[in-house]
Amino acid sequence: MIQSTFFYTTAIILFLIGLYGVLTKRNVIKTIITLTIMETAVNLFLVTIGYVKNGTAPIFTSTISDVHKFVDPLPQALVLTSIVIGLGTTALMLSLAIRLYKKYKTLNYLEMDGEDEK
């Protein structure tokens, strides 16, 4: 049986993988990917906080109205917000990557130099 401890562990391991990637990778696109991994990990963590074993989605329908089986809806609302925020940040990061590539013709962060020092 899958326990929520399993989800917590997965979330934290994913978070740490993302952190390791951010610390070591110097490629713009790879950095963006690792940051996305971190975001996903945090979302997983948040959803797990509201997890109820054998629970149902927190929506009343004509057949379901047992509130005791509902999973916690608040973390889901938080995740909804954080997904949208993550989308915005990723879009912005990718457009910055496009501009950086056009300017320096490389995606390696360390090789970007030669800026006019005005």
Partner: peptide, 29 residues
Amino acid sequence: GISFKGAFRYIVLASLGSSMLLLAIGFIY
């Protein structure tokens, strides 16, 4: 070019920070 470099560095650190902030919020909630 340097503006984009600075902006990219800032947004990487900021989204790293925001992930941590959100994780803290998860722990709190």
